[in-house]
Design a protein around this nucleic acid. Structure first.
Lengths: 133, 133
DNA sequence: CGCACTGTGCTAGAACTATAGCACAGTTGT
DNA sequence: ACAACTGTGCTATAGTTCTAGCACAGTGCG
């Protein structure tokens, strides 16, 4: 399964689900029109509450990423981030990231440390240049 | 300032503080024995509550990263992740990560997308090739 | 239609996060 | 001793997250 929340990250489960569904769509693992797992079976598989999955799906619909059809199921929206050419772009990026993470692991860095490195890079590059120490 | 929490990430502020202090120590921006900003001034600067900073510092002490001296202040622990040689390792890693993030940004990826890419890489490389579900 | 599936809506409670304010206690410098 | 700083501990409140359970409503199939 593409989707697997991690309770130890501090990020709310429903937000992790939102991110992972987006990621699956961005990388082409889920394609426009395709049906997502139903709320109840998915909740059971992930051993989390039905309401938590429902909340994630509702947030995804609010952002226009998926479409909820009452009684029918949840489906990847036809428009949005799943436009043609995007999947290739993301696959290249995926390889780049996998390579970077691989190198960092080879240097003996733990996942926590890698995560902090990336958070700092994302937060810091905007203000690049002003490093005092 | 090295430390700056981001409320929009979903991660609790105090955990962001914990991570950023660890990162500052790992990269050598804060060195063993050095005094950290005091709870009250830091809370005021970040426009967050004193208790939130105190909670972060206490968590850092619990993990042995810093040392809290009642009445004197908070200090980076002499032992732990700030061992000699670590700073160089992290500086190399920092450059690697900055380069990767730069390339991803140049490809037009947003920060959210980059974050998801990395989360997926960190979560996925362990099960590369093996996972059926 | 009947039935099984789907999403929707609600209540209630436990746990956690963050805020605010107050009092206490140890350290440092004068 | 005193003042000004430091961390510690407590109460109270508001908001969010997650769980649990129940009922309702739309869809699709036989």
């Amino acid at each position: 399964m593409i989707i697997k929340p991690n309770p130890s990250l501090g990020v709310p489960i429903y937000l992790q689900l939102v991110g992972q569904v987006k990621h699956a769509i961005e990388t082409g693992a889920l394609r426009p029109g395709e049906q997502l797992p139903s709320i109840r079976p998915l909740a059971e598989e992930l051993v989390i509450n039905v309401n938590t999955v429902a909340k994630a799906y509702r947030e995804l619909e609010r952002e226009g990423v998926i479409e909820l059809r009452h009684g029918a199921g949840a489906f990847v929206a036809e428009t949005g981030r799943a436009r043609p050419g995007a999947a290739e772009k993301f696959r290249g990026a995926q390889a780049l990231v996998a390579d970077a993470v691989g190198q960092l692991r080879k240097r003996g860095l733990h996942d926590d440390e890698i995560r902090r490195l990336f958070e700092a890079a994302l937060a810091g590059l905007r203000e690049a240049g002003g490093r005092g120490g």
